[in-house]
Structures are given as C-alpha cells and as structure tokens.
C-alpha cells in the first residue's frame, strides 16, 4: 500500500520523454574543464540521454499535470518573471511556441522538476560534454577544426529568428540529436562549474568563491565552442532563463533510478 502513491507518480512520467532515450556507454574522456583533482580526465558510468531536447508540447503536458509549474503559479524563487513568457497563456502554446520547438525560457528549477516527474534527472555537465563531443561518425570530434567551426557558426546566426523544431539535425555517433546548433541546455551541476566573471584573471581567482571540486578553470582555451557554453551557463542563476536555453533529461543505468 505504501508503494502505491509512488507508482501513481511514476505513471504520468510516460509521455514526457519525447523522442525517447539512447544509451551511452560511458568511459574515460578528457574534459575541457581542468578539474583540480584529475587534471581533466573524467570517467563516466553508462547512462541514458534523451535523443532530443524537451519540446513545448512535452512541457505543456508537464505543467498541465503539475500546475504548480504553470507560469502564473510558480514562485518567483523558482523562476524569474519571464518564465514561459512566449507561451500564449499558462496552459496554451500559441504561435510563438510551436509544439515541436524546444522549450526555452525555463529555469533550472523547472527543468529539474520536469526530469524528476519523468523519472529522470538533468545530465551532469560531464555527461553532456561527453555526448556532445561526438559528431555523426566519431565519438570525439573535438580536435577537428571543421567541427569546431560548424559549432561556432551557430553563434553567427542572429538570435531573433524562430527556433527550429527538434530532431532536424543528424544524429551523432550515439544517436543523440540537437546537442549543437539549436539551444543551450541546462545541466544538473551547472552551478558548480563557475568560470570567472572576468575571463582574464589568471592566477588570482578568488578560490574561496569556488568550493572544493568546483574550483575549475578552462583547460582548452582554444575550444571556443565549449568555452562559450560554459560561459553562458556560469552567468545564470537557477531561477534565470533565456530565449535560447532549454534542456533534456538523463537517467543513470546501474541504479535503475535517478
């Protein structure tokens, strides 16, 4: 009897996973972030990642099911005032938010709540970075200048154009789509990957500001494509949002639960 409420919670999770999940094998790879303890080498357990970013249609289902995440009800500590402001109403999408466009203007709190309701969690930065290092044929394409240039070309596109629908870009080596060229994405631990607000400080960073393992710096200064993603995330607070920032969920495999 005690398990029943939990089971009831899990049932609505169906329908919140959109294009479904793909499994990534994990293993060791080199992060662009220079972690103090490992020098940047990161080992990941196998995990599952949503094939595509969460869409407006999927997020609409979520706020209908959990009305406390509707824009007129959410506490301002969890989402700033522009939360889902491009939707026609608290429970309708309208012309500025097409069903298959990635949902944006969502705070980290809202994104986390969505993934939780879907029986999942946000990916860690390392999981995201690992998945996003791939191109269509290689698991790690990051050293290829052409690959970097392709990512940078997204920054050259004006941001006042409507977002494309999800699933338009070719799947990468792992079968994941839209990691580049569509939206920024929240990560679970984004708040611990602070880069200095002033990019030019070298040795003098205020180390007290960055606790423990979070005290990291950019190791690969040539990799602007990733550097900019880190810069964007580090400018955000968890209630913040932008018109280009969406998310997708991840699941751990070994434990069976998030």
């Amino acid at each position: 009897m005690r398990l029943l409420p939990l089971a009831m919670l899990m049932v609505p999770a169906l329908g919140l996973a959109g294009g479904g999940y793909v499994t990534l094998p994990g293993g060791s790879y080199k992060s662009v972030l220079a972690y103090e303890d490992t020098g940047g080498t990161v080992t990941l357990a196998p995990f599952e990642l949503m094939k595509r970013p969460v869409t407006n249609a999927e997020f609409l289902k979520f706020v209908r099911r959990l009305p406390q995440w509707q824009r007129d009800r959410v506490p301002s500590v969890f989402a700033e005032s522009r939360y889902l402001a491009h939707w026609a109403s608290a429970t309708a999408l309208g012309s500025a938010a097409l069903p298959e466009q990635p949902v944006v203007m969502v705070s980290w709190f809202a994104a986390s709540a969505y993934c939780e309701a879907a029986g999942a969690r946000l990916p860690t930065w390392n999981e995201w970075e690992y998945a996003a290092a791939a191109d269509a044929t290689r698991a790690d394409a990051r050293a290829d200048p052409a690959w970097r240039e392709q990512i940078l070309s997204w920054y050259a596109k004006p941001s006042n154009q409507p977002l494309a629908e999800v699933g338009q870009s070719p799947a990468n080596h792992y079968g994941v789509q839209d990691l580049h060229g569509l939206v920024w994405e929240w990560t679970e631990d984004y708040a611990s990957m602070l880069v200095s607000a002033d990019n030019r400080t070298q040795q003098e960073q205020d180390r007290l500001q960055f606790c423990g393992a979070g005290a990291i710096a950019m190791d690969d200064r040539e990799n602007y494509a990733v550097l900019m993603r880190v810069a964007l995330l580090s400018s955000m607070e968890a209630a913040n949002l932008t018109s280009n920032l969406g998310f997708r969920c991840a699941r751990s495999i070994d434990e069976g639960t998030p």
């Binding site: 920054y155 006042n160 810069a231 932008t242």
Partner: peptide, 20 residues
C-alpha cells in the same frame, strides 16, 4: 534576444577588472 552573457571593462574605471 541575446545568446550570450556579456560584461563591460571600461578603461576609465580604477578598480579590479574595470567593472568586468
């Protein structure tokens, strides 16, 4: 509509980072 975070360093400022 911006994609990026930004800041400003004014060389007319006396102080760390010029305001950055």
């Amino acid at each position: 509509d911006s994609k990026m975070p930004h800041n400003i360093d004014l060389h007319a400022v006396t102080g760390p980072g010029g305001g950055a």
